[in-house]
């Protein structure tokens, strides 16, 4: 059992959990993820390591409640325990001094880019951050992001907070500003990463994305997470999750994310009616 030592509500559907996992904390690096199960009958769900504290022996995750598993996770409180918690999985972010970098976090993607900004900054990069969400309620960690970036642009699609518009607008402005940018990270919903990659492509700026394909084991054993990058089939859990966004077959990823859409609905309805009954 893995103890939740701290819970924070970051928004109506966004929850942060600090989980006791000293061995994972010792090894965790930016860009990696864990897989957890909420209960004995639970699915294995992948979540990015949003932060780690080696001294305290904890891992921080931030989760957005979408379907059954993430909603059930959202009901847990400090002192509750998770059925399983495995990691660190995936390859770490390749950190070096690139020069000027832009790091874009869309919606829940703000959580995974936070540790990446921190390590990129520690490596000497000048880090410009862009964070955005559909609406104000889905934004979080603005202060935390300020502390790990040299500049930060904040916006919402509906204009309820910060600049109005999608994250690709400020991204394009930066690329057009005359400053030379050496690398871009973009993490968020697949569709947002796709458009960030399309935005940077004409400028030839290396763009790293973190692919959130459907996973089961997270160790290369099942192939559920397969994606096509540069024309080759790769397993996102072991070969990624970070890949060159200009090489990703986005339509395939988007299509594969929908495989279980109907059954996810069934699971959610069963969960809600069970919750209503109790």
């Amino acid at each position: 059992m893995y103890l939740i030592t701290h819970k924070e509500v970051l928004g109506p559907v966004t929850k942060l959990f600090v989980v006791e996992a000293p061995e994972i904390a010792r090894k965790a690096q930016a860009g990696q993820f864990i897989i957890l199960r909420v209960s004995e009958r639970g699915e294995r769900i992948p979540l990015t390591i949003a932060d780690y504290d080696r001294a305290a022996g904890t891992i921080t995750i931030v989760v957005q409640e979408l379907g059954k598993s993430t909603q059930e996770l959202g009901t847990l409180e400090t002192g509750d325990a998770l059925a399983s918690f495995t990691g660190p999985l995936g390859r770490p972010t390749e950190v070096k001094n690139y020069g000027n970098v832009i790091v874009v976090g869309g919606g829940l993607g703000i959580a995974p880019i936070y540790p990446i900004c921190r390590v990129l900054r520690e490596a000497g990069n000048h880090v410009t951050g862009i964070i955005g969400a559909r609406t104000r309620d889905l934004l979080f960690w603005e202060d935390a992001m300020r502390s790990v970036t040299d500049e930060l642009i904040v916006g919402t699609d509906d204009g309820s907070y910060g600049r109005q518009g999608v994250v690709t607008t400020p991204l394009k402005e930066l690329l057009d500003s005359g400053t030379q940018y050496d690398a871009v990270w973009a993490i968020g919903p697949a569709i947002m990463m796709k458009f960030c990659a399309l935005t940077t492509q004409p400028y030839g700026v290396r763009t790293i994305v973190s692919l959130n394909s459907i996973m089961v084991d997270g160790t290369g054993m099942c192939g559920a997470c397969r994606v096509v990058v540069g024309g080759r089939t790769r397993f996102a859990c072991v070969d990624g999750p970070e890949f060159d966004g200009h090489e990703v077959d986005w339509d395939l990823l988007l299509s594969r994310l929908r495989i279980y859409a109907d059954l996810e609905q069934v699971a959610l309805e069963a969960y809600n009616s069970a919750r209503a009954a109790s």
Partner: peptide, 10 residues
């Protein structure tokens, strides 16, 4: 045993 168990298979 889906949906009593959470993982779908299709």
């Amino acid at each position: 045993l889906f949906p009593e168990w959470d993982t779908p298979v299709k």
